[in-house]
Protein backbone atom coordinates (compact mmCIF):
# COMPACT_ATOMS: atom_id res chain seq x y z
CA UNK A 1 0.00 0.00 0.00
CA UNK A 2 2.80 2.40 0.92
CA UNK A 3 4.67 1.81 -2.32
CA UNK A 4 1.46 2.23 -4.34
CA UNK A 5 0.84 5.61 -2.74
CA UNK A 6 4.46 6.63 -3.33
CA UNK A 7 4.16 5.66 -6.99
CA UNK A 8 0.94 7.68 -7.29
CA UNK A 9 2.66 10.72 -5.78
CA UNK A 10 5.64 10.25 -8.08
CA UNK A 11 3.37 10.08 -11.13
CA UNK A 12 1.65 13.28 -10.06
CA UNK A 13 4.68 15.32 -8.99
CA UNK A 14 7.95 13.56 -9.84
CA UNK A 15 8.13 14.61 -13.49
CA UNK A 16 9.49 11.17 -14.34
CA UNK A 17 10.05 10.22 -17.94
CA UNK A 18 8.31 6.88 -17.36
CA UNK A 19 5.33 5.82 -15.22
CA UNK A 20 6.36 5.05 -11.66
CA UNK A 21 4.43 1.78 -11.88
CA UNK A 22 7.06 0.55 -14.32
CA UNK A 23 10.00 1.28 -12.02
CA UNK A 24 11.64 -1.17 -9.66
CA UNK A 25 11.65 -0.13 -6.02
CA UNK A 26 15.41 0.30 -6.27
CA UNK A 27 15.42 2.27 -9.53
CA UNK A 28 17.19 5.63 -9.38
CA UNK A 29 14.44 8.28 -9.53
CA UNK A 30 16.88 11.06 -10.44
CA UNK A 31 18.09 8.97 -13.37
CA UNK A 32 14.42 8.53 -14.32
CA UNK A 33 14.02 12.28 -14.65
CA UNK A 34 13.14 13.62 -11.21
CA UNK A 35 14.76 17.00 -10.58
CA UNK A 36 15.64 18.43 -7.20
CA UNK A 37 12.74 20.82 -7.52
CA UNK A 38 10.35 18.00 -8.35
CA UNK A 39 11.59 16.18 -5.27
CA UNK A 40 10.38 19.12 -3.17
CA UNK A 41 6.89 18.69 -4.60
CA UNK A 42 7.11 14.94 -4.06
CA UNK A 43 8.12 15.50 -0.45
CA UNK A 44 5.22 17.88 0.21
CA UNK A 45 2.73 15.55 -1.48
CA UNK A 46 4.05 12.61 0.54
CA UNK A 47 3.59 14.63 3.72
CA UNK A 48 -0.03 15.16 2.74
CA UNK A 49 -0.60 11.54 1.76
CA UNK A 50 0.97 9.99 4.86
CA UNK A 51 0.32 12.81 7.34
CA UNK A 52 3.98 13.04 8.27
CA UNK A 53 6.60 15.75 8.12
CA UNK A 54 10.09 15.20 6.81
CA UNK A 55 12.58 16.64 9.31
CA UNK A 56 15.68 18.48 8.15
CA UNK A 57 17.94 15.50 8.74
CA UNK A 58 16.01 13.51 6.13
CA UNK A 59 16.31 16.18 3.45
CA UNK A 60 19.04 14.37 1.58
CA UNK A 61 19.31 13.28 -2.02
CA UNK A 62 19.56 9.72 -0.75
CA UNK A 63 16.15 9.89 0.98
CA UNK A 64 14.35 10.51 -2.31
CA UNK A 65 16.64 8.50 -4.59
CA UNK A 66 14.46 5.38 -4.88
CA UNK A 67 10.94 4.22 -4.03
CA UNK A 68 12.46 1.84 -1.49
CA UNK A 69 14.38 4.69 0.17
CA UNK A 70 11.26 6.87 0.33
CA UNK A 71 9.28 3.97 1.77
CA UNK A 72 11.95 3.38 4.43
CA UNK A 73 11.97 7.06 5.37
CA UNK A 74 8.20 7.16 5.70
CA UNK A 75 8.39 4.02 7.79
CA UNK A 76 10.66 5.74 10.28
CA UNK A 77 8.45 8.82 10.38
CA UNK A 78 5.24 6.84 10.80
CA UNK A 79 6.84 4.99 13.72
CA UNK A 80 7.40 8.24 15.60
CA UNK A 81 4.48 9.16 17.86
CA UNK A 82 2.87 12.45 16.88
Amino acid sequence: MTDDTIRRVLDAHGKLRVPASGLDADADLYAAGMSSHASVNVMLALEDAFEVEFPDELLTKQTFCTIAAISAAIGTLAAVPA
Binding site: L59, T60, K61
Partner: peptide
Protein backbone atom coordinates in the same frame (compact mmCIF):
# COMPACT_ATOMS: atom_id res chain seq x y z
CA UNK B 1 25.51 26.27 -4.79
CA UNK B 2 24.62 22.62 -4.15
CA UNK B 3 26.56 21.71 -7.28
CA UNK B 4 29.56 23.82 -6.37
CA UNK B 5 29.69 22.28 -2.91
CA UNK B 6 29.78 18.80 -4.45
CA UNK B 7 27.49 17.51 -1.72
CA UNK B 8 27.52 13.81 -0.95
CA UNK B 9 24.09 12.12 -1.39
CA UNK B 10 23.83 11.68 2.36
CA UNK B 11 24.33 15.38 3.17
CA UNK B 12 21.26 16.89 4.79
CA UNK B 13 21.10 20.45 3.53
CA UNK B 14 17.71 22.09 4.05
CA UNK B 15 16.96 24.80 1.51
Amino acid sequence: VVKVLELPPTAAVPW
